[in-house]
């Protein structure tokens, strides 16, 4: 038996919003420690890794590990049936081929349940080692979304350069070029408004702006986004999911021919 209850169904809605641009379907691996998801987009350029810890749920029970392959379009339709203030419970029997979503209004006067068929998905799992990154940048998530949106008007690629002074985002194309420099915040009153750089060595990498834009669909999950970079390895874009977990996007860099 698997059962996970979350008082704020809006978190689940936001998680889905954050992954459905990149993925059509995904397997939710449920264990005693929580719910994990790892999936690459169809082109194998980016990867989504999500973790929701069991202790972040209001109730969590997982007697046996289960992997639930879900069509994210169908899941989106079902979660649209939940009001933001509803309590959501996901339930499945061991070895089940369906999952049930139960939505309860805060006063318990309306209770709805939606059963969704599960899918058997062939999954490729990548082993991502724990890595010390040469540069770790934290900035307001809204600012990052704005930068990605603005620069994607110029070209298909965004160059991210990180030095101890700050971080620079650049793009160039047919209409011209654009550079956005963010300096490290000197006085930090509010952490969620700060730009911070932890740098071991400067890094410059090039990425497809289309994927960066997709990652920013997670903006509503967190005030802050963290970018981790090292020379010639994938970028990691991480958003915390409240006190319950995180979503990380990995993006392979573009390399000069």
């Amino acid at each position: 038996m698997f059962e996970a209850r979350l008082v704020q169904s809006s978190i689940l809605k936001k998680v889905l919003e954050a992954i459905k641009d990149l993925l059509n379907e995904a397997t939710f691996d449920c264990s005693d420690s929580g719910i994990q998801l790892q999936a690459m987009d169809n082109s194998h350029v980016s990867l989504v890794s999500m973790n929701l810890r069991s202790d972040g749920f209001d109730k969590y029970r997982c007697d046996r590990n289960i992997s639930m392959g879900m069509n994210l379009g169908s899941m989106t339709k079902i979660l649209k049936c939940a009001a933001n203030e509803d309590v959501v419970t996901m339930k499945a029997q061991d070895n089940a081929d369906t999952v049930t979503f139960v939505f309860e209004s805060p006063n318990q006067e309306k209770v709805s349940d939606y059963e969704m068929k599960l899918m058997n998905l062939d999954q490729e799992h990548l082993g991502i080692p724990e890595t010390e990154y040469a540069c770790v940048v934290r900035l307001p998530a809204g600012e990052f979304a704005r930068i990605c949106r603005d620069l994607s008007q110029f070209g298909e690629s965004v160059v991210i350069s990180c030095t101890k002074e700050g971080v620079k985002f650049s793009s160039a194309g047919d209409i011209g070029s654009a550079n956005i420099k963010l300096a490290q915040t000197s006085n930090v009153d509010k952490e969620e408004l700060a730009v911070t750089v932890e740098m071991q060595e400067p890094v410059t990498l090039t990425f497809a702006s289309r994927y960066l834009n997709s990652f920013t669909k997670a903006t509503s999950l967190s005030n802050v986004v963290q970018l981790s970079m090292s020379p010639d390895v994938p970028l990691v874009v991480e958003y915390r999911i409240g006190e319950i977990g995180h979503i990380r996007y990995y993006l392979a860099p573009k390399i000069e021919d």
């Binding site: 350029v45 990867l47 490729e124 799992h125 990548l126 991502i128 994938p234 573009k254 390399i255």
Partner: peptide
Amino acid sequence: TPIQNDLHEFYALV
């Protein structure tokens, strides 16, 4: 123009 890499070039399958 730079060439887009694949994630398989960086991480092994497990």
